[in-house]
């Protein structure tokens, strides 16, 4: 940054420029916008940032992000502790919660197995899931990783890891098939094939 800028402004611009999708021009525009903002709005932002880093923790049971550990879902006695839904990211939990269909607990892996990105089984919270099996009364594990190559590899690995530990738990995978508003003509053969295998009775 040019030395004509006061140092605090330059610092903020640098900080913004580190965010994804924000280049130097956008970063300076945001910084100058904040400079002109009423003090309390700008301070709210700073307070929100501080709180994000200071009071967000990983739930020690499901590894979702939360304000407390155990998180709200894990601490809720009305949830069925016999089912655990395994997802890749915290955002997946939010998506599943929005359905209102699921009343069990979660387990967040924080990623998926991906050789290209160098993410192996030991980089994910898989050991923690195996450990949960030993101490919690789990009847069913729902593997809700993404229906991508990486998600499938992760689900496959979890199955092996659980079986290697002698677990007889019921393992299920989210159904895959045609999306709402989809078009059979454009479906790829893998999706369509799976939709055919997993077809269900008309009720």
């Amino acid at each position: 940054m040019s030395s004509a800028l006061p140092r605090p402004v330059a610092r903020l611009i640098d900080a913004f420029a580190r965010l994804p999708g924000i280049g130097p021009k956008t970063a300076s525009r945001l910084a100058f916008h904040l400079l002109r903002m009423p003090d309390d709005h700008a301070l709210q932002l700073s307070e929100a940032l501080r709180a994000l880093k200071e009071s967000v923790v990983h739930c020690q049971r499901c590894y979702n992000i939360a304000e407390t550990s155990p998180c709200e879902v894990c601490a809720d006695p009305s949830r069925d502790s016999g089912t655990v839904c395994v997802v890749e990211e915290p955002l997946d939990v939010i998506a599943l919660e929005r359905t209102g269909e699921y009343k069990g607990l979660y387990h967040v892996l924080h990623g998926a197995i991906s050789p290209v990105d160098g993410i192996g089984p030991t980089d994910l919270r898989i050991d923690e899931l195996v450990r949960r099996m030993g101490v919690e009364p789990i009847r069913e594990i729902i593997l809700a990783t993404n229906p991508s190559l990486e998600g499938d590899a992760t689900a496959m690995f979890i199955e092996r890891a659980l079986r290697a530990n002698g677990s007889e738990v019921r393992l299920t995978r989210l159904a895959r098939g045609l999306p709402v508003g989809g078009d059979i003509e454009y479906a790829d053969e893998v999706t369509l094939g799976r939709a055919m295998t997993g077809r269900s009775e008309v009720r």
């Binding site: 990105d117 160098g118 092996r160 290697a164």
Partner: peptide, 21 residues
């Protein structure tokens, strides 16, 4: 190569987990 490092990691895990389909 990343895949080589990954495979080596996988082989270590394979001592305890059966990876064959």
């Amino acid at each position: 190569l990343r895949s080589v490092e990954f495979l080596n990691g996988l082989r270590r895990v394979a001592r305890t987990v059966d990876l064959a389909p």
